[in-house]
């Protein structure tokens, strides 16, 4: 059984009125996420990826279909808080997620809500702040931090709940390049070192490239999915849906179109240089 199992989920923000067809934000999605996986979900604004994310911790419930978290159905009311303890959700705007005036007190908010013992909260808070490299800032005021730092504190706030999976809804959309890098490297570290399951929702392709698996959504449906290599080699499909591909993949794809023999579409700078060197030798 997968850790997250999304089974044929439909969801609409509109109420069904007679005669009028409703626009589904999520339109029949089935998807599994295994423990320890790093999955990136990409797509345009309004493609349903954020709506899907809110289904993973029972913030939204499907109109039809099921979402199972570690075997528990999210629609069972008595399971809601168990599910939110297992799946933490980080939102886009870092400012609006920090609820306390001091960093460490903010991180403590989650475990405090769960009624954890004070000494244990302290331990979790310190550990979470260290995991995102913000321990030195524990007594700072959030509004004085940079965007990247705020978002890392928000991640620590989720980590302190000790979830098994962390879902991030466009956590880097409002950050500058340095902030983006800080957040993404923190996520990679959590995934690699702590075996944290990560579901990253983003529209930056260079972030998606780092995932184990990429899911492309459009119009509330899953368009395609697979390893980054598999997904980004479908340059034509992605372009048709007006999605970006990494520049290296685009270049390789165009050269391939003119007859160059390429085994694997390169996604990184190093791979692309190696491929071109090989070709030009």
């Amino acid at each position: 059984m997968s850790f997250i199992s999304i089974q044929d989920v439909f969801f609409s923000y509109e109420q069904a009125e007679d005669g009028k067809p409703v626009q589904n934000a999520v339109d029949g999605v089935s998807l599994n996420v295994e423990k320890g996986e790093f999955v990136a979900i990409i797509g345009h604004n309004g493609c349903g990826k954020s709506t899907l994310a809110k289904h993973l911790n029972a913030m939204l419930l499907p109109d039809s279909g099921k979402v199972l978290i570690d075997g528990d159905d999210t629609s069972l009311e008595e399971k809601t808080f168990d599910i939110r303890e297992k799946v933490g959700l980080v939102l886009q705007n870092p400012d609006n997620q920090l609820v306390a005036s001091i960093v460490e007190e903010d991180v403590a908010f989650g475990p405090e809500n769960l009624g954890v013992e004070p000494a244990e909260i302290r331990r979790r808070v310190d550990e979470a702040l260290k995991a995102v490299d913000m321990y030195e800032y524990r007594t700072h005021a959030p509004f004085k931090l940079s965007g990247g730092q705020k978002q890392r504190v928000a991640i620590a706030g989720i980590l302190a709940i000790q979830p098994q999976c962390i879902v991030l809804d466009e956590p880097t959309a409002m950050l500058d390049p340095n902030g983006r890098e800080e957040v993404i490297s923190t996520l990679l570290k959590l995934n690699r070192e702590k075996k944290m399951t990560v579901v990253l929702i983003t529209h930056y392709m260079d972030e998606a490239v780092l995932a184990d698996r990429v899911v492309v959504m459009d119009g509330g449906k899953v368009l395609t999915q697979g390893t980054p290599e598999e997904v980004f080699s479908q340059v034509e499909l992605l372009k048709k849906h007006r999605l970006d591909v990494p520049q290296s993949a685009e270049l390789a794809y165009r050269l391939k179109g003119c007859g160059l023999k390429i085994d694997n579409i390169p996604l990184t700078q190093a791979d692309c240089v190696a491929m071109l060197r090989e070709a030009m030798r």
């Binding site: 913030m59 939110r84 303890e85 939102l91 007190e105 908010f109 405090e112 809500n113 004070p118």
Partner: peptide
């Protein structure tokens, strides 16, 4: 964000400090 962090009112809350 508060709901995502399991907030459900004052009942059963503990404090770090």
């Amino acid at each position: 964000a508060m709901e995502c962090r399991c907030y459900r009112g004052g009942a059963g809350r503990t404090r770090m400090k």
